[in-house]
């Protein structure tokens, strides 16, 4: 399968690979997917409590090139956004940005899920409301 330039760029030099301290109250961790499906994404966010903005994000992904690129892109996009702005990120935007073919749409869905799951974890840790 031919990959788009952008997928290749993220795959070859993934942005924000790594881990944040999952025990920290200001960190939200989302782990989505399953090994038997061939995709597991871990996405973490660091939130500044004063501003409510995401100051840092890290990921690790077990998955195909498109899954790696989708999660790498997701970390780039959430950085600097507020929680609500991050929640507004749609998988279709990831599809568009990376020119993912139809068989790879599930990678973008997983990346969106990973963002939501990380935010959910942060909100739960801090007793904040969440509406999903």
């Amino acid at each position: 399968m031919a990959y788009s330039e952008k997928v290749l760029s993220h795959y070859e030099t993934p942005r924000n690979v790594g881990s944040l301290d999952k025990e920290s109250k200001t960190v939200g961790t989302g782990i989505v997917g399953a090994p038997e499906c061939g995709d597991v994404m871990k996405l973490q966010i660091q939130v500044d409590e004063a501003t409510g903005k995401i100051t840092d994000a890290k990921f690790k992904t077990f998955g195909c090139g498109s899954a790696i690129a989708s999660s790498s892109l997701a970390t780039e996009w959430v950085k600097g956004r507020t929680i609500d702005e991050a929640l507004a990120i749609k998988n279709t935007e990831i599809v568009q940005e990376l020119s993912l073919p139809p068989v790879k749409i599930h990678c973008s869905v997983l990346a969106e899920d990973a963002i939501k799951s990380a935010i959910h974890d942060y909100q739960e840790k801090n007793g904040l409301d969440h509406d999903h």
Binding site: P14, V17, S19, I31, P35, V40, M41, K42, K60, T61, F62, I68
Partner: peptide
Amino acid sequence: LELSPLYE
């Protein structure tokens, strides 16, 4: 492996 959450 460096990228893998499973390995971590």
